[in-house]
């Protein structure tokens, strides 16, 4: 093969289902007893699979990596069903309560361990980390840049399209006030938005095939980290549930609803 192999490591997070009630526990942490593969992490996974399918003369492997409690294995298993080739799960008691800083420390070590573990037929691989645009429950979007900084990799966030060129990746991204087309060299971390593609669903055959794919479980020691290296720098002091919004006055239009809305706005001093 002409080109160096490419190892795409897609990060998938196991998060509380946003369709259900989400809450904090008494320790000020998000209750993670139940969860799903973050919907926003299906887009980078789909992008990875499309890059693999489009690469004609290149060996491409798609690895799914998650960091989370025991239950997070369902996130990587789902990724295997959707089409990842292999998967890794990082679980450790010391990661409970990890903040952005600690998460990116752990993910950096995990990405390096994954990259180190991969064996390729066609030579030394380049690697590319794909992430979602944001965690569904944290919504910071800060992990991709932190991870890149720690890995010494380039970063492109908010990708809306990705295309492999021989020595680099072409990415369209949406910056705040402009759309940019950029070329990025590996190693790179690219976060992918929900505008990038339509994620596929696993079919029965894929679900059966996934059972035979390798899933490796690691703790911190396995990736060479000590618990004190992932101590959070930020602590949550209090969490307060907001009283849920309650329905106000609902009227049925009898030909004068427009007037009534304006009356309401005037009464509430919103005009």
């Amino acid at each position: 093969m002409v080109n160096a192999p490419l190892h795409i490591i897609t990060l998938v997070k196991w998060v509380p289902d946003a369709q259900l009630e989400r809450r904090y526990d008494a320790e000020g942490r998000i209750d993670r007893s139940e969860g799903v593969l973050s919907e926003l992490d299906e887009y980078p996974l789909e992008a990875a699979l499309q890059l693999r399918e489009a690469a004609q003369d290149r060996e491409v492997r798609v690895t799914a990596l998650t960091m989370g409690p025991a239950g997070s294995s369902t996130a990587v298993k789902k990724a295997l069903q959707i089409g990842a080739d292999d998967a890794y799960q990082l679980t450790d008691e010391a990661l409970i309560g990890a903040d952005i800083w600690a998460s990116s420390v752990a993910l950096k070590a995990a990405v390096e361990a994954v990259a180190g573990a991969g064996e390729f037929d066609s030579g030394e691989p380049e690697y590319l980390v794909l992430t979602g645009m944001a965690s569904e429950e944290g919504e910071s979007g800060a992990i991709p840049a932190q991870l890149a900084e720690r890995l010494g990799a380039h970063v492109v966030t908010y990708a809306t399209s990705l295309e492999l060129a021989p020595d680099r990746l072409l990415v369209t991204r949406s910056g705040g006030t402009e759309s940019q087309k950029v070329a990025v060299r590996m190693p790179a971390v690219v976060s992918v938005t929900d505008q990038a593609n339509d994620p596929r669903y696993p079919n029965f055959k894929a679900i059966m095939a996934a059972k035979k794919k390798p899933l490796t479980r690691w703790n911190l020691a396995d990736i060479g980290l000590r618990p004190e290296e992932v101590t959070a720098k930020v602590r949550v002091l209090t969490t307060t549930a907001r009283p849920p919004r309650t329905a106000g006055e609902i009227i049925i239009d009898e030909g004068d609803a427009g007037l009534k809305v304006v009356e309401f706005l005037a009464k509430e001093r919103l005009l």
Binding site: D99, I100, W101, S104, E139, S140, G141, A142, I143, P144, A145, Q146, A148, E149, R150, V155, T157, Y158, S174, G175, G176, A232, K233, V234
Partner: peptide, 23 residues
């Protein structure tokens, strides 16, 4: 808390070896 500013400040926090609070 825009995308480009978050990218820059997230990297800065790594360099300063400190925590970041977003949003």
């Amino acid at each position: 808390s825009t995308a480009d500013i978050t990218d820059a400040l997230a990297r800065l926090a790594v360099r300063l070896d400190t925590g970041i609070i977003c949003g």
